[in-house]
């Protein structure tokens, strides 16, 4: 039996009257690159935030790498938050320094390789960066960590096509070198479909469908087709 990297049982979360997660269940196998898919407001970001301990469930349990989420488990998780910005006063060099001092598993040499690959310079100031450049910097900080779990919440949101291509290339490069469990929440399915081994489709806070991508493809067509079937 495959070990779970993340296991959720009957997760419920409400924000006032809005239900973010409703009896959500999932088992995400270790060592897979998993697509977290669904329309806006389906509960994807809430689930990802629960993995990092930022959000607590109202009911139900979630285990991450066999433990309850907390600030301690975050030492094993590289997390790219949804709609995040980088610290405005930093240069790229200071961002790398921040990562090397505060993030366990941060590999400075790897960070510089990624930064070079993503077309950024050490003395570039974050305050003067385009959204795409800032997204590439944030991704480099995450990918430079040698940790068992990588959680990327909408890494392509609002990013131009060229930046997206660079980011996908960096992801492919990174995944081929390491045996991490990776979760990526995205709406850019066409550009990223080839990355995924496993997929979880969210609908109104529930797990509408999940499974091995190859098996899903054999049964129901491409990930994009399944997305259209479920939400179209």
């Amino acid at each position: 039996m495959t070990q779970s990297a993340i296991s959720a049982e009957d997760l419920c979360k409400r924000y006032g009257k809005k239900i973010a997660l409703a009896d959500f269940r999932v088992d995400i196998p270790r060592g897979t690159v998993t697509a977290i898919l669904g329309p806006n407001g389906a509960g994807k970001s809430t689930f990802m935030r629960m993995i990092t301990g930022m959000v607590r469930p109202d009911r139900g349990t979630v285990t991450v790498l066999g433990r309850k989420p907390s600030w301690k488990t975050n030492a094993s998780i590289a997390y790219l938050p949804d709609r995040a910005r980088w610290f405005g006063g930093h240069t790229v060099r200071q961002a790398v320094e921040w990562g090397s001092k505060l993030l366990p598993g941060f590999q400075t040499d790897r960070a510089w390789e990624l930064i070079d690959m993503l077309g950024l310079g050490a003395d570039q100031e974050v305050a003067g960066m385009s959204k795409g450049q800032e997204a590439r910097l944030m991704l480099a900080v995450c990918l430079a960590r040698d940790v068992p779990l990588l959680v990327l919440d909408e890494p392509f949101s609002g990013i131009d096509m060229l930046s997206r291509e660079k980011i996908v290339a960096a992801l492919i490069d990174s995944f081929s070198e390491r045996s991490q469990t990776v979760l990526i929440s995205t709406h850019e399915i066409a550009e990223t479909e080839s990355l995924f081994d496993y997929a979880v489709f969210f609908a109104e806070g529930r797990n509408a469908l999940s499974g091995d991508v190859e098996e899903l493809r054999a049964r129901r067509g491409s990930v994009q087709d399944i997305y259209r079937q479920l939400y179209g």
Partner: peptide, 8 residues
């Protein structure tokens, strides 16, 4: 998001 997920 960066600040609250630091492992401290």
């Amino acid at each position: 998001g960066w600040w609250l997920t630091l492992p401290y």
